[in-house]
Design a protein around this nucleic acid. Structure first.
Length: 299
DNA sequence: AGAATTTGACCCGT
DNA sequence: ACGGGTCAAATTCT
């Protein structure tokens, strides 16, 4: 049982490694400044090193470190850990995780800033946030955001402390979700796209995951954005909703910008998208920011 | 007017 | 004493 799980993890790591290598070759072709390209390649190199290290540890039967992330992937990882009889970390006060992201504000929760500090040796101030519902629902989740000194586009270290005990945002109303999404600044990598429900195809998709997966129709607001999608699709974590069908065909992807045909993501590329906001009650369409965080690809 | 942010002061651990 | 985290009054925003 354990070997089977470890084999699956190794397989996932191999895929992550391959996809990162592909992304690395794509980055080299992207038309951007040398500084930006160098920063991206440094990060990609670090990811590849992490993949290699993890693979080596798994192959040698070493300790398994599963990063805690706010996504369905965590649920999958948590289940696997449970199968390995590893006691989960349950004290909300001791919960802590870090991540580097270009979009530190778009994590699906609402935060209230309560302080900022100049940190010795850092160019940028460190900002402190607590959950908006820290008082109403006695939620003790906090996070701090620290913009990194180097790197273009801007990267932020985000440290989460304490788990949310409040009602998560993806169980809020569709109107709330739409407003929230519109308030977020678009990622430096991101695009703004139109997302529409495809009610008639909803019955086609299978396994439910949390947050709920909803079939959708992607429509790009510019050709430039649509061009960037396929490569990002290749790099996203498809295993998040493995076995789930989005009920969407690539023929429905269309450009509104001009008559040129955008590159068409394949159906397999589309599979794996999930939403952490509820779109059930969106009558026609809503604009969303596309977060290109490599491991947490989400809307 | 209430909510959210800003910012100097305070507290605590090292 | 210093650095980092939090508090709370003042200020700004909606």
């Amino acid at each position: 049982m354990e070997n089977k799980i470890i084999d699956s993890v190794i397989q996932e790591m191999e895929q992550a490694f391959d996809r990162t290598a592909k992304l690395q070759s794509l980055v080299e072709l992207v038309d951007c400044s040398d500084t930006e390209k160098e920063s991206a390649l440094v990060i990609l190199e670090e990811i590849l090193q992490s993949c290699s290290a993890t693979r080596s540890m798994l192959n040698s039967g070493g300790a398994i470190a599963v990063p805690q992330r706010n996504s369905a992937a965590i649920e999958i990882a948590s289940r696997d850990l449970a199968a390995l009889h590893v006691p989960p970390r349950r004290d909300p006060r001791s919960y802590e995780r870090e991540e580097i992201t270009a979009t530190p504000y778009n994590d699906g929760y609402q935060w209230r800033k309560y302080g900022e500090k100049n940190i010795k040796g850092c160019t940028f101030k460190r900002n402190y946030y607590r959950c908006t519902y820290s008082h109403d629902q006695r939620c003790n989740a906090k996070k701090l955001v620290q913009q990194q000194d180097s790197g273009a586009p801007s990267l932020f270290l985000v440290v989460y402390k304490g788990e949310h005990t409040c009602t998560p945002s993806w169980s809020s109303t569709a109107e709330d979700a739409q407003l929230m999404v519109q308030d977020f600044p678009t990622s430096a990598y991101g695009a703004v796209m139109q997302v529409q429900d495809c009610d008639e195809q909803r019955s086609a998709h299978g396994t439910a995951v949390t947050p709920p997966v909803e079939p959708c129709l992607l429509r790009f607001d510019s050709l430039d954005h649509s061009k960037r999608l396929p490569s990002h699709m290749n790099s996203m974590r498809r295993s998040v909703v493995e076995g789930t069908t989005m009920g969407i065909s690539s023929s429905k992807v269309e450009s509104e910008a001009d008559s040129m045909e955008p590159p068409q993501p394949s159906l397999s590329d589309i599979c794996g998208i999930y939403f952490d906001t509820v779109l059930d009650e969106v009558s026609s369409s809503c604009s969303v920011g596309l977060d290109m965080d490599f491991l947490d690809f989400r809307f």
